[in-house]
Amino acid sequence: MEHLLSLFVRSIFVDNMIFAFFLGMCSYLAVSKTVKTAFGLGCAVIFVLCVTVPVDYLLQTQVLGPNCLVEGVDLSFLSFILFIAVIAGMVQLVEMVVERFSPSLYASLGIFLPLIAVNCAIMGASLFMQQRILMDPATSTQAIGGVADALAYALGSGIGWLLAIVALAAIREKMAYTDVPKPLQGLGITFIVVGLMSMAFMCFSGLNI
């Protein structure tokens, strides 16, 4: 239980998807103009992460890992193709479910929902999870040793991503009224703002959990 909690808190603040690993940067920069859409996209990312990472965990440990399917065969090199197929399939499924049960949410998310399939944060979380299976749970708070750990990691990463995109959207809404040099306007200043936010988040790296 304690391990779950520390994994969860750690993946929100210390191993933040945006500020520590730059994952999901493209949609992060493109969709952070207003708080409302940013929040919607963040929630969709949390949901897709929470479904795909545990599924990919089961795939990795039950099918792809060494000696899982056939004795003496390590299929890990197929993980890229399988993970991306799971993600693309899951996004398609989520899209159909949302369209069927909540047409209003579907309309407000629009194009962002299918775009989650190529969001690096989703693929990145699965690949980090794959690396962390090998870690020893006794010595490292980052280790993932079961489906529950994978779910805690996915939820934490998703919330961290949501936090980052909502914060940037709020800053950009205010920044619309400031006088920025012309060539720096838009993308340039956004990068620098994200850099400063990332510096602030570096304080959490001293957190001892």
């Binding site: 500020f19 690993f21 993308l187 620098i192 990332s198 570096m202």
Partner: peptide, 16 residues
């Protein structure tokens, strides 16, 4: 990581 963002922002500034 923070400085990567800031340097990239400066590259964009110069390019534009």
């Amino acid at each position: 990581p923070a400085m990567a963002l800031i340097i990239c922002g400066c590259v964009i500034w110069a390019h534009r």
